[in-house]
């Protein structure tokens, strides 16, 4: 039962994170929110018992890809047009 509640909470937060990443105008904020999204995914994997996947998600999704996104956005316009 406890797991169910955590599960639902994470899933709700996931939806919120995805919507926020879509709505914000500042691309750096969006990429950081992507990092949050990945980390929530990582929690979800870990909670479901797929620890290997969770580990990969944490290193690649929340770690490297956020850094690379931010590094790229520094070379572009920071505001999104829509």
């Amino acid at each position: 039962m406890g797991l169910e509640i955590i599960n639902t909470l994470i899933l709700l937060l996931l939806v919120v994170a995805a919507l926020v990443a879509l709505r914000v105008k500042d691309l750096i904020t969006a990429s950081v929110v992507f990092g949050v999204y990945s980390f929530l995914m990582c929690l979800l994997w870990a909670e479901m018992g797929a620890v290997d996947v969770a580990f990969t998600e944490a290193t690649v999704g929340a770690g490297i890809s956020t850094v690379v996104l931010v590094a790229t956005i520094f070379n572009l316009k920071r505001k999104s047009s829509d």
């Binding site: 990969t56 490297i64 850094v67």
Partner: peptide, 17 residues
């Protein structure tokens, strides 16, 4: 234990970053 080439490699790359 969980882990392997991909994760280890990413961590190593992250240290240089």
């Amino acid at each position: 234990s969980p882990g392997g080439g991909f994760q280890g490699g990413v961590l190593m790359g992250a240290s240089f970053i």
